[in-house]
């Protein structure tokens, strides 16, 4: 079983029913993607499959041959953060932080498809992601902030530090 993860070709030889979540976490050692419910109910395990947000806890790895997966480790780095990651820091979004990789993956799929989402668009795209710490208001603001920055080509990472 071969597929790409964050642009790198990876292979997995175990049980094809194994959810992608456990393969990326424990076989590929990419621990940013989180386990929250195992039933597609909370969004903590959200990754991109060919650009769309999916729940990796209910996606058997056998279904992924030749497809491309992106995880939180693949959307930005400290040096080159995704605009959402810059906005997340500018607005101090995370509390416990456990849901945040999943939130960022849902939000980044949203912005890729719809660069200027309305509040309603955000509600629709994000309501599969639970945050028990209640960071929703800041998530919503941060998505707007990143969207505005992208529209104006402002580098938030620089703005944030200044």
């Amino acid at each position: 079983m071969k597929f790409t993860v964050n642009g790198k070709e990876m292979s997995f030889t175990g049980d094809e029913e194994t959810p992608l979540l456990w393969v990326i976490r424990d076989e590929f050692d990419l621990k940013g993607t989180k386990f929250g419910c195992g039933k597609g109910l909370c969004g903590a395990c959200t990754v991109h499959l060919n650009g769309s947000a999916i729940r990796s806890c209910v996606t058997p790895v056998g279904a992924l041959a030749n497809l491309s997966v992106t995880t939180i480790e693949g959307i930005g780095s400290a040096e080159h953060p995704h605009p959402l990651q810059a906005a997340w820091q500018a607005l101090n979004v995370p509390q416990c932080g456990y849901c945040q990789p999943g939130q960022l993956m849902s939000a980044s799929a949203l912005l890729a498809a719809n660069p200027s989402p309305t509040d309603d668009d955000i509600n629709t795209a994000m309501s599969g992601n639970i945050c028990r710490c209640g960071t929703y208001p800041r998530i919503k603001k941060a998505i707007h902030l990143a969207s505005d920055a992208m529209a104006k080509s402002v580098d938030l990472a620089v703005e944030v530090k200044a």
Partner: peptide, 28 residues
């Protein structure tokens, strides 16, 4: 003080939670 010090690690999936502990030969 405004900057939240753990925001960075938690924005890049780098914060290590209990469930993320990795050890050689780890069993489940």
């Amino acid at each position: 003080q405004r900057v939240r010090l753990d925001a960075h690690a938690k924005t890049f999936g780098k914060a290590v939670f209990g469930i993320d502990i990795e050890k050689e030969d780890l069993l489940f």
